[in-house]
Design a protein around this nucleic acid. Structure first.
Length: 432
RNA sequence: GCGGCUAUAGUUCAGCGGCAGAACGCCUGACUGUGGCUCAGGAUGUCGUGGGUUCGAUCCCCACUAGCCGCCCCA
């Protein structure tokens, strides 16, 4: 029989690494709560057309990277339906916003999520087919202030605080504006026009991009094409007054609270729905996958999905990459890679003491201690060996201890061995 | 989807066209109620999968699968 393995691009997360994941998630919930965000959990799969309409039919994600299947009809009256494992979570959040008429509250919705997403890409460092994202969206009717540049700045400030609180240093915030939903098509048209006479002199990659997605030419890393790219029209010249003012206000608010950023007029994002502010937090040490998180404003997304006018801004952060960054930086505040030690290892000396040992372990655990329970079948030496690996102390429960209620406790760090009455055990272990 | 590199013990890796190796880990003992350190001994394995060349393949060739790195794209 062939050995079953996790499928390509998926992986198991095991302890103690999961401690680090839990730590990151705990910091996320703590920080985001301070900004009064609430958690949303949307389904892991959705109707395929949700992603086709939001992410963009022509994007690589939709055209070749989605896990899509036909959910067969179970009855004559039922139609089959095309379903897709979510490749990102913003579309699902906006769908939920529309479906539950959240705009009718008249309030800004501030929602965050933590969960797996799926794209059928070639796996590499920090890139998996099932990958985890932390994201947040601020969305609501214009009357709730959802269009305000203050919302953009607040989200960016929250992210900078979040990364600081995690202990990640050396991140870089890159900012741009891609204009309103009317600016953007005008600019793309101008870009196509400017590219037409010169694209033949560019690399094959850029020739193809010039056809399919001209914005991406700006992202090119090909030094040979630099000179041509420098002559192309700039998005900043195509922004209307409102978009310019919006961007200036975002920058001013960031300046006011000392959040450092760099404006990169070439930063474009891959998804069709972005308008105005777009951004990326990058970090070295991630190889080619240097983007830690990315996001932007999507003022027209709700309407694209048939909903009410509901401008919004949000981001998605690659958790797999964030963890990699934390591991490579060996951040002090994060749990280390080494296993977490139990407070004590309870060692029954003889199988007849197994049952009393479980009772002892239960009592200590109920007092909040982290307890590993051994087995009376172990030779005492083996108990010590295991205990030394898993716990800070060992508690011996032999016939004497059981009869007298005074337990033998040895601390591995000091080598000190003492007798402690059962009712004082928990408090004694708290401090050693 | 494309290109390069890789796949050998639980782990990290060496190796060779002719008996399968090291380190760490694991097990046993020195020490029948005492770990770490030390010493002595021991067990590891479809050499990724399938085919081919060869008297003989873990080694050479091909395909496949998976991983890493890069490209495309993207978080």
């Amino acid at each position: 029989m062939t050995l079953l393995k996790a499928v390509r691009g998926t992986r198991d997360l095991l302890p103690p690494e999961t401690e680090l994941w839990n730590h990151v998630e705990a910091v996320t919930r703590r920080v985001f709560a301070r900004y009064n965000f609430g958690e949303i959990r949307t389904p892991i799969f959705e109707d395929t057309s949700l992603f086709a309409r939001s992410v963009g039919e022509e994007t690589d994600i939709v055209s070749k990277e989605m896990y899509t299947w036909e959910d067969r009809a179970r009855a004559q009256s039922e139609k089959s339906q095309s379903l897709t494992l979510r490749p990102e979570n913003t579309a699902g959040v906006v769908r939920a916003y529309i479906e539950h008429n959240l705009g009718e509250t008249g309030l800004l919705q501030k929602l965050y999520y933590i969960g797996p997403q799926f794209r059928r890409e070639r796996p590499q460092k920090g890139r998996y087919r099932q990958f985890w994202q932390i994201g947040a969206e601020v969305i609501g009717p214009p009357s709730a202030g959802s269009e305000s540049p203050l919302r953009d700045a607040e989200v960016l400030e929250m992210l900078s605080s979040f990364l600081d609180e995690l202990g990640i240093t050396g991140w870089n915030l890159v900012l741009n504006s891609v204009g309103s939903s009317t600016d953007r098509p005008k600019y793309v048209a101008a870009l196509r026009q400017a590219l037409a006479p010169v694209k033949d002199r560019m690399s094959p990659d850029n020739q193809r991009r010039a056809e399919t997605n001209p914005l991406r030419v700006l992202d090119s890393k090909d030094p040979a094409d630099e000179a041509i790219i420098a002559t192309l029209p700039k998005i900043a010249d195509y922004l209307d007054e409102a978009s310019k003012a919006h961007f200036a206000a975002v920058c001013a608010a960031l300046d006011a609270c000392g959040v450092k950023y760099e404006v990169n007029p070439r930063l474009v994002r891959g998804l069709d729905y972005y308008t105005r502010t777009t951004f990326e937090f990058t970090h070295g040490g991630l190889g080619a996958q240097n983007a830690l998180l990315g996001g932007g404003r999507y003022d027209g997304l709700s309407e694209m999905l048939g909903g009410p006018k509901a401008p919004g801004i949000g981001f998605a952060m690659g958790l797999d990459r964030l963890i990699l960054t934390l591991q490579s930086a060996q951040i002090e505040s994060a749990p280390s890679a080494s296993a977490i030690l139990a407070d004590a290892f309870v060692a029954p000396l003889g199988e007849q003491l197994n049952a009393p040992a479980l009772k002892l372990a239960r009592d200590l655990r109920r007092q909040g201690l982290r307890i590993e329970l051994g087995d009376g079948g172990f030779r005492i030496k083996k108990s010590f060996e295991i205990a030394n690996k898993l716990a800070r102390n060992i508690i011996l429960l032999g016939e004497d201890e059981h009869a007298s209620g005074i337990l033998t406790v040895k601390n591995f760090a000091t080598g000190e061995q003492t007798k402690i009455p059962r009712d004082q055990l928990a408090s004694a272990l708290q401090t050693r």
